[in-house]
Design a protein around this nucleic acid. Sequence first.
DNA 1: CTGTTAGCGCGTTCAC
DNA 2: GTGAACGCGCTAACAG
Lengths: 342, 342
Amino acid sequence: MYIGCKIACGYTPAMAVTIVEIAKRAGVSHSTVSRVLNNTSDVIAKDTRERVLTIAKAMGYVPNLAARSLRHARTRMITVFAAGPDDFWLGANPTIITAAANAFRDAGYELFCSFGGSAESTRMPAWRFDAAVLLDRVPDDLRHQLRAQNTPYVVINDIVDEDALIVPDDAQGTEVMLEELYSLGHREISFVSPGSWYVGHHSIVARQAAFTAFMQSHDLPHSLSLEDRIVSEDMDGWLRGQLDLGVTAFVANDHHTAIVLMSAAARLGVRIPGDFSLMCFNDEFPLALLEPPVTCVSLDSELLGRTAARYLLSLLSDKEQALAHVTRIPYRLVSRNSTAAH
Amino acid sequence: MYIGCKIACGYTPAMAVTIVEIAKRAGVSHSTVSRVLNNTSDVIAKDTRERVLTIAKAMGYVPNLAARSLRHARTRMITVFAAGPDDFWLGANPTIITAAANAFRDAGYELFCSFGGSAESTRMPAWRFDAAVLLDRVPDDLRHQLRAQNTPYVVINDIVDEDALIVPDDAQGTEVMLEELYSLGHREISFVSPGSWYVGHHSIVARQAAFTAFMQSHDLPHSLSLEDRIVSEDMDGWLRGQLDLGVTAFVANDHHTAIVLMSAAARLGVRIPGDFSLMCFNDEFPLALLEPPVTCVSLDSELLGRTAARYLLSLLSDKEQALAHVTRIPYRLVSRNSTAAH
DNA sequence: CTGTTAGCGCGTTCAC
DNA sequence: GTGAACGCGCTAACAG
C-alpha cells in the first residue's frame, strides 16, 4: 500500500510573517505598520505608508486572526448549525449555505459548518463565532443558549416564536401549483405527503392549509379528506386507490415523494402524464433527467441564503435591533413534461 | 413582512468565562486552573483539582481557542478544500466530510469547509489551519502552497504525484461489476461514460483500463472499441445502436449516467432488466427508489473519510514523516433489480 | 504543590 | 507623524 517516497519532514507549525517583521524591514515600529494596514490613521507620511504596503505585499503578509480576535472580542467567523449532521446536504441547503457563505465572505466574515456529533448537535464548536445560521429544525436549547450569550442568529426554514425567520413561501408555492393544474382542467387533485418524520413540519402544515383553502375557494369536490391524501406505507396500493377514486393530478410534497410515486406508476403500468399529472416541490436532482421530466416549483435558494446573510450582517455591523420577523421566499414554476391537460 | 416584536438589544460580543474567573472563584491562581484543565501536571492536590473542575463545569467554561492557538502556533482547525464550491455536496463527499469531521473532533480538532469563490478556489481562508483535506481535483498551486508552508494535507479522490492519496479502488469496483454480469451470462457488455468533463479523470481512466483488462482476460468479443462505449450527446440513438449491436448489459460510470440511460430506455420502450441489465458506480439517491431499483457498487465513504482523518492526525500528533502513498478503498456489491441472467 | 511572570500577534491608547 | 507600552486569554518556565 505504501510507496516509500519521502515527501516532507515532520510537521512543524508554519511561521507566517507578522507585523513586527514588516516593521523591522521598513524601519518603523510595529504600531505604524498596524496603522497603515488597518487604515486607522489619516496622518501617516505618504512614503512610509507606501513602503509598508509594498513590503507587506512582498512578504505575503496575512493578518493573524487569532491575535486580532483576541484583541477584539470577535472572531469574524459565523457558524451554521443544522438539525443533524446530514442536514447540511439536504435538498436546497447546499445552495443556501454557499450563497450565504459568499455574502459573508464579501463582508469579511467566514462561514463554517459545525459538524456536531449526531447525539449532541447542540454542542458548541470550539471556535468562538460572531453569529450563527440555524438550518431547519435545530433544538430549542441551542437557540436559547445563543440568545443567552447574546449571539445574533437567523433561523432558516423553521417557524419558531420570537426569532428572525427566513422560510420558503409554502402557501404561495402551493397556489402556483394548484392554479397550474386547475388551468389545465384538473379538478380532482391529491396532495401526496410522506407519513413519517415530516409530520408537523411547518412546510407540510402550510402546504396542506393552502391546499384546503384553494380547494374550498374553487369549490372543488371534497370526496377525499386530507388524511386520505397522505400516503401510507404501501404506495402502489394507495396510488391505485386514488386513481380509482378519479384523481387526475398529484402534488407531491418533495422530489423524493415524487420519485417514489413515479416508480409506483411504472410498476402499475400507469402513464404520466397520460393517466395522471404530477408536480412537486423543490427542483432537485434528478427531476429534470427522469422520463418524463418532472414539472415542479423551484425555490430561489440563493436568494434565501443571501437574505439570511444580509440580515445577520446588518445586525453585526449596524448594531441594529434584532426584530422577530418572517421573510418568505417565493417559488417559481418550472414547466416540464409530467403535467398535461385533462 | 415585519412583525414588530423586539427580541434582543443590539449586538454586543458575548463575554465567555475565562480561567481567571474560575481561578477567583476557586481561590487559586489562573495557572493552577490551566494546569488542572489541561492535565499538564500530575502533582496537584486532589481537592484543588476537583474544586476547579466542578467550578469550570458549573460556569460552562470553554477554552478560548484564539488565545490558545496564539500561544502555540496551532489553531486546531483543519480545512477541507474542494475543486469548486459545489463539490462539497457531490456524490459521496458529504459522507466523507462528515466522517472525517467526527474523527477530527474526537481528537480535538475542528474541521471546517472553506467556501472559496468559484473563480478563486485557491484562496486561503482568513483563518490559519493546522492541516488540510483536499477533495477531488483541487488546483496544483494550492498543493504547492500548502507544501511550501509545511502544512500537512491529504488528497482524496485524485491521483497526483508525491502526495498522500486516498482513492476509491476503481479497478476492484469494475471487476466486481463485470464478474457479477459475467456470472449472470452476459458477454457483450458496454461501459457507459459521459463524454464531457469527466474525460481524463483518474477514476474514468482506471475503470476503463480495468474494463479492457477484464474483457481481454475473459476472451470476450471486442466488436466494440472503447470509444464506441462512450456516450455522445444523443443517448437515445446511442442506446438503440448499442442494443442493435447485441449489447446485453451496461456498466454506467455513475448514478447520473445510469439515470439518463434509464430514461432513454423508457422513451424507447426498452425494458430493464428484460432487454438489458444495468449497473453503476456509487450508491446514491435515488437509485434504490427507481423502477427497477438499480444494482450498483457502493463505496464505504465513511471508511474513506475516517482513513483520511486518521492519516492527518498521525502526522499532527506523532510528528511522523509524511510518506507519499496510495490507499485504495474497496467497493461492495449492492444487488437490486436492474440486473438479471441473460 | 502552587503562585508569579513572560510573551504569543495584534490593536489601541498615550506620549513625544 | 510616530514609537512605547499595555492587555486580550492562555500556556510554560521559573520560583518558592
